[in-house]
Amino acid sequence: MFLRQVWTVCAKDLRSELRTKEALNSSLAFALTILLLFSFAFDPGADQIQEISGGLLWMSYAFAGALILNRSFARELFNDCLDALIFSPVPGAALFLGKALASFVLLLIVELACLPVFGIFYNVAWADRFGWHLFVLVLASWGLTVVGTMFSALTVNLRMRELMLPMLLYPMMIPALMSAMHLTTVLMSGQAIGGDHWIWVRLLIGIDIIFTALAVALVEVVLVG
């Protein structure tokens, strides 16, 4: 029952997004623009590119992701849809997980579209160890979306929503972002994940679990009060 409710909310969000494509298009275009801007900041052909590739990639993901997450609850403001959702017999946790899942899928689409583009433009080996790449992508993106969706709900009724969300979101994203940057850099420079790198995988998994648990437990308070 609970999973059906989660799925209903998720499908609703995805459907409305795929019909308008407003968040998806803008965040994809934004991510590509950032990747382009990075090429002016340093020499894109240099060898050091592999050492900073993870950082570059995840920075653009984080910026693009904030656009998607900003829309997650803000899109429900028109026609008082948010109130209708809160009054509906769906528990807050299901509403939250459904919305998080939808944003997660959208973010993953943007990331998977950017990865080959980045690989081509900056000449890094993105296709090697693709399974590991996917593993890092999924774990880190989930961490970003959980915090992002939660803070999207937190700031939805604020006067300065557009300003407040990035300011709260980015510092809180750092644990997941930092691990993802490190692991992606390791993968892009052709190494395997092992030894010292496991701490980052553990941190990533820990962050995902802690933030998901906190968000599911507290979302009811945020939405209903």
Binding site: V147, M150, F151, L154, L168, P171, M172, P175, I207, I210, F211, L214, L218, V221, V222, G225
Partner: peptide, 13 residues
């Protein structure tokens, strides 16, 4: 209410 929720997240750091 909202800042209390935020504080719960902040404490992890």
């Amino acid at each position: 209410r909202l800042s209390a929720v935020f504080n719960m997240f902040a404490f992890t750091s």
